[in-house]
């Protein structure tokens, strides 16, 4: 499991949180602050919005903690809250409904590749919905069925976004490398 969310949380901590214990809330927050923020940042591509999603998702979590039944891992439950919060924001912008062709890559900067930074930059150049599908599938380990359900779309939508998104990501990521190689 590659997800940063995959953290085992003791039942006693969840129970204390469900009773309104603020210190338990804080421990849960500290455990999941960065996974939630990172997921939101990858989906929305904007640090300020990711910060807002972190706030909103955690608030939702704390309000709903008493409803957690324990029939699935706690981290998966929280992750779905964060995904839903991010998707709500994308829907408000209408980008989920209008997603279609991926834009052609812009002229890639000829800066030397610094792998992680280049990959993040390439990822950020994908459309938000495509990027979200790519991230949820490849990193968070969502299935096509789960992605389709979250987005309210078909499984084919998830597969096509992933296929085209991955192809485009590779092109964007490797373009600077190619330019350097042929320079």
């Amino acid at each position: 499991m590659s997800s940063h969310f995959a953290i085992d949380v003791p039942n006693s901590l969840i129970e204390r949180g469900a009773r309104g214990d603020m210190r338990a809330f804080e421990q849960i927050y500290r455990l999941f602050e960065r996974p939630v923020y990172t997921l939101a940042l990858r989906m929305l591509g904007d640090a300020d919005e990711a910060q807002e999603i972190l706030h909103d998702a955690m608030l939702q979590l704390f309000r709903k903690l008493g409803q957690f039944r324990g029939d699935a891992p706690f981290w998966g439950w929280l992750r779905q809250i964060a995904v839903n919060e991010a998707l709500m924001r994308l829907r408000r912008r209408g980008v989920v409904e209008t997603v279609d062709e991926l834009p052609e890559p812009e002229d890639c900067a000829a800066a030397p590749p610094e792998h992680q930074r280049d990959l993040e930059r390439a990822l950020n150049r994908l459309p938000q919905v495509t990027r979200s599908v790519v991230w949820l599938y490849h990193v968070e380990g969502y299935s096509h069925e789960e992605i389709a359900e979250s987005f309210g779309k078909s499984v084919s939508f998830s597969k096509s976004q992933l296929a085209r998104g991955t192809q485009k990501l590779r092109a964007l990521y490797e373009a600077p490398l190619a330019q350097v190689a042929y320079a």
Partner: peptide
Amino acid sequence: DLVAALRALPMAAPKRSVFAELERELA
């Protein structure tokens, strides 16, 4: 390789903690 590189990206950290805000709102 691409997927491995994606998974190896480090987690990002928010500019500031929002816990104090949450605590105030919940209180």
